[in-house]
Every structure is written in C-alpha cells, then in structure tokens.
C-alpha cells in the first residue's frame, strides 16, 4: 500500500497552518525572522528545516478585477459576462500552494544516496533514516524539486517524512490534519488519484478548463521520475509554482556515462601507448 498527499491548490487559503503543524510535530528548528518581500511568503522555499512551504502567488500576469463587481455572485461561481466589462479568473488571481516533498516514484534522491540512508518505507514513502545519513549532500542536487538541504548546525539532510511516526500509529500527517480547507488530503495513492480526477471534472465543469493534476506520469509530465506520490491540483503552469515541467531522473544516464567513459579510457590509453613507439 502506498500512501501520499493530494494538495488541492484551488481551495488553499494560505493560512500556513500546515507549515506550523509540521514544524511543531516534527520539532524542526525555526528559520529566523527575515522578510523576503515575496508577497506574504517569508518562508521562501522548502529546506531541511521547512518541510511544508506555502507559496503565495500574486499573479499580475492575469486578468484583473476591474469595474463594478458583485463579489457575492463571484463567490457563487457566476461566470457570465460581468458588469462593467470586468474580467476575472480564479478569484482575483491569488494562488496559494502548499508545497512538500513529492515522494517521487523513482526518487532521484534515493538513487543518489550512497549510504542507503534514503529508503522507501512500508508506506512506500521516501524516507531519510537520520541515524544513517552522513551528510554527504549528494541527494541535494539530485532532487528535481529542490526539496532537500543540509542543515548546517546538524550536518545531516532532512525533508518531509510524510509523518512516518504518525502513520505507524494510524494517524494522518500533521499538515493534513491541520489543514482547515482540506486542501491537503492524505490517503492511499490510488484513492487520491480518483479524488483528483473527480475534482478536475468538477473544476472543469465550473469553467476552470485549465485545471490539471501534477504528479502522474501520464498527465503531469513527471514521467521521467515515474510520477509523484504527492500530487497537486494546479491551475497554472508548473513553473508558476516553481515546479519543473518535465523533471528527469538524473541517474538514468549513469550507464550511458559508463559507456562513454570506457570509450574515452580506451582512446586515451591508445593515445598514450602510441607515444611509446620509437
């Protein structure tokens, strides 16, 4: 049985309850008080000490709300021509997204790890065993989503554990528990896939034709890594959420590099051997 997340960005209100719940439950150190200037997002990005990160996207690139708008009608999903020629798209274009480790099916971080610290646990989640990691940091540039970083004070690397400890006790992860809008859903990957499909159908029926699921190998362009166990429902290009459109498995080319290295070794050997001729 594989468990994972489905993060529905269309209902996220940016309250950051997940960020807080994650920090509290997992006892992750604070990141300090720094103002980023990036909207209301002072967390900025995922890291070894931030396992949930809520992105605040103020999208000026989109239609603006102009004219005399009936906000009640708007909230009730009225999609006809608005008075004063007002145009709108996804409630005034605030976009929030609670980002997290994608728990890739063919996880590049796991393949990179030389100590075997990164494993798939019994819930099929990608898990870093803190008692094994020696902080070589090779998983950091391997991750196609910039999820892992080394925590300098500790020396090791950390990331979302999908609340391994809570799952073992039959509880859902802290972030999913805390989320007030159910933007973060936790469950079996197969179930969540169905939930996601239904939600997309609903969204499309409401006129959000651009809605799609990010994280399935067939649809989201994540085939390079076999898809993600934590998926997202998105309304915008993946890049808007700082996600790669087609993440790839860096290790797919290790065998190729062996071959080219062997050829190069042969050529160099021959070149040097030729120099010995009298």
């Amino acid at each position: 049985m594989a468990t994972g997340f489905l993060t529905d960005t269309t209902v996220c209100i940016g309250c950051k309850a997940c960020e807080v719940a994650c920090k509290q439950w997992n006892q992750i150190p604070a990141d300090g008080y720094e103002l980023s200037g990036n909207s209301y997002d002072n967390t900025r990005q995922l890291s070894g000490t931030t396992w949930r990160h809520v992105a605040f996207i103020e999208n000026p690139k989109h239609r603006r709300l102009t004219g005399d708008v009936d906000l009640v009608a708007l909230a009730e999903d009225v999609r006809e021509q608005l008075p004063g020629g007002a145009e709108l798209d996804a409630l005034g274009r605030w976009t929030f997204m609670s980002d997290v480790c994608k728990h890739c099916v063919e996880a590049p971080c796991q393949q990179a790890c030389p100590t075997g610290a990164i494993i798939r646990n019994e819930f099929d989640n990608v898990y870093i065993q803190p008692d094994i990691c020696n902080g070589c940091g090779y998983c950091v540039p391997a991750c196609p989503y910039g999820v892992i970083t080394q925590v300098p004070e500790d020396g090791r690397v950390f990331k979302c554990t999908l609340c391994y400890d809570r799952q073992r006790d039959g509880m859902e992860p802290a972030c999913a528990k805390a989320c007030p809008t159910n933007s973060i859903m936790f469950g079996e990957v197969e179930e969540l896939k169905k939930v996601a499909e239904e939600r997309i159908t609903t969204l499309r029926a409401k006129g959000y034709s651009q809605a799609y699921v990010y994280g399935t190998p067939e649809v989201g362009g994540t085939g390079g890594i076999g898809g993600n166990h934590s998926k997202f429902i998105l309304l915008d290009e993946p890049e808007t959420y700082n996600l790669a459109r087609h993440p790839f498995l860096p290790q797919a080319k290790v065998r190729g590099a062996f071959v080219t290295s062997a050829i190069a070794a042969g050529v160099l050997g021959a070149v040097v051997a030729l120099a010995f001729r009298d």
């Binding site: 090779y138 950091v140 910039g146 808007t240």
Partner: peptide
C-alpha cells in the same frame, strides 16, 4: 517571467 520570485527551483550542492 517564469518561476516564483526568482527562488531557485532546485538546490545547489554545498561542496
């Protein structure tokens, strides 16, 4: 403009 406030989407090695 693509991306999220110019925050790097991947992390560099600490080497």
């Amino acid at each position: 403009e693509k991306g999220y406030y110019g925050v790097p989407p991947i992390k560099a090695a600490h080497w």
